[in-house]
Write a protein that binds this DNA or RNA. Structure first.
Lengths: 163, 163
DNA sequence: TATTGTTATACTCTATAACTATA
DNA sequence: TATAGTTATAGAGTATAACAATA
């Protein structure tokens, strides 16, 4: 193998990553013991990675409007999975976070999913596992950043004529 | 790097794959020119990979009930993105497929997402890209199969007490 | 009788618009 | 006046239950 273009690498990601995600998603669906919707689950996971974040920031990342996310958070606060506190410096903002129960919920979910993934990659050789880990570590920084500063939403109805 | 366990490899996947998926998902959200919901988009992509499949099979994969998927397909058929034909051999079943317009829609979406991913992996060296492609090819067969033959749904309320 | 899919109905989720509170 | 969130209302999406058609 030689001369791999960025486009070819992208094609591989596009074909394989969603398949891995299917397995993760199926696991999440199967064991949502707290009866969480997918959006609620994604929100918990996001709060796990981003403590003390604002409502707007969560809404933008998850892809919901502010009112929708406000209501979704309502439900998580009621179930004592999420904390919602007024920001001391700017009393308009709120700081969101996980309660111990919320943290336990997400930890438990991750543990289960990790086991499912481990079973999937079990057939790999030692060499292949090392390869896998190296690749993930190389990809990690490239997909953590937000390169597109809130790109404008397509005006819904005006489809772009693209390649 | 040596002595990588399946659990460690799984941990890497669990941390990085959802981040890549965030980028893919954000792109899908941003340019759903046909005004497709996420479920509708996933359905089109699934039909692209699995021609002439039944309604039940699609519903199970996407994670919707049969009535919900029936209605979702209604919408896609109305917009002339999906074909729905009675199966000749067994007239209870239906065969689903993409219309040329549906195929064009999914192709266009993939092209855009591929470009976004290519931009992300552009910083990788030639060596790293080769690594990436090799890893994806090794993972592909492991995540294509369905090892869990429709595992029973947790009875909703009885959360498992796990690690 | 069992299987595949659809129709009927109700509920949940999400969005748009209007509003409150703080800056 | 601008910004961060919430409340009010309406529309879309989804589920459960009942039904129709084929095997």
């Amino acid at each position: 193998m030689h001369g791999v273009s960025a486009e070819q690498a992208a094609e591989e990601l596009l074909q394989v990553v969603p398949r891995i995600m299917d397995v993760i998603r199926a696991d999440v669906r199967r064991r949502r013991g707290e009866d969480l919707s997918v959006a609620q689950f994604r929100t918990l996971a996001f709060l796990d990675r981003n403590p003390d974040i604002s409502l707007s920031a969560v809404a933008e990342h998850i892809g919901l409007t502010l009112p929708s996310m406000s209501k979704l958070i309502d439900g998580l606060v009621e179930r004592e999975l999420v904390t919602r506190e007024t920001c001391p410096g700017d009393r308009r903002r709120i700081n969101l976070g996980l309660t111990p129960r919320g943290q336990a919920t997400i930890n438990s979910a991750f543990a289960t999913t990790r086991a499912v993934l481990a079973a999937r990659v079990a057939p790999l050789s030692e060499q292949e596992r090392e390869n896998l880990v190296r690749t993930m570590q190389e990809l990690r920084p490239l997909f953590m950043m937000d390169p597109e500063p809130e790109a404008e939403r397509v005006p819904a109805g005006e489809t772009n004529g693209n390649p």
